[in-house]
Amino acid sequence: MKVYGVTGWKNAGKTGLMERLVAEITARGLSVSTVKHAHHDTDVDQPGRDSFRHREAGASEVLLASPRRWALMHELRDAPEPPLAELLAKLSPVDLVMIEGYKREDHPKIEAFRAVTGKPLLADRNATIRAVASDVPQPALALPCFDLDDTAAIADFILQEVGL
Rank of each mutant, 00 (worst) to 15 (best):
T117V: 01
L84D: 02
G48L: 10
S92C: 12
E56S: 14
G101K: 07
E111A: 02
E100D: 14
E105A: 12
A127L: 04
P82K: 03
E100Y: 12
G48V: 09
T117R: 03
A59C: 13
I99E: 12
H54V: 14
P67G: 14
E81N: 03
P47F: 05
F52S: 15
I99C: 11
L64Q: 13
D41E: 12
P67V: 14
D50Q: 14
I99N: 12
E56L: 15
H107F: 15
K90I: 05
K103M: 04
S60K: 15
S66M: 12
G58V: 11
R69A: 10
T128D: 04
A131D: 03
K119S: 08
E81K: 04
A115R: 10
L63I: 12
R104D: 03
E100L: 12
N126S: 00
P108L: 11
E56K: 14
S51W: 09
I99A: 13
P80F: 07
L72W: 07
P82I: 03
V62K: 14
K103Y: 05
S92P: 15
D124E: 01
A112R: 09
I110A: 07
P67E: 15
F113C: 04
P108Y: 13
R130G: 00
K119N: 08
P93Q: 05
S92R: 15
F52H: 15
T117K: 02
A85N: 10
N126I: 00
D41N: 09
A127S: 08
D78A: 09
A38L: 01
I129F: 00
G118F: 07
R69N: 11
S66R: 13
A127W: 01
R114Y: 06
D45A: 01
L72Q: 09
M73A: 02
I99R: 12
L76A: 14
H74S: 10
E81R: 03
I110W: 08
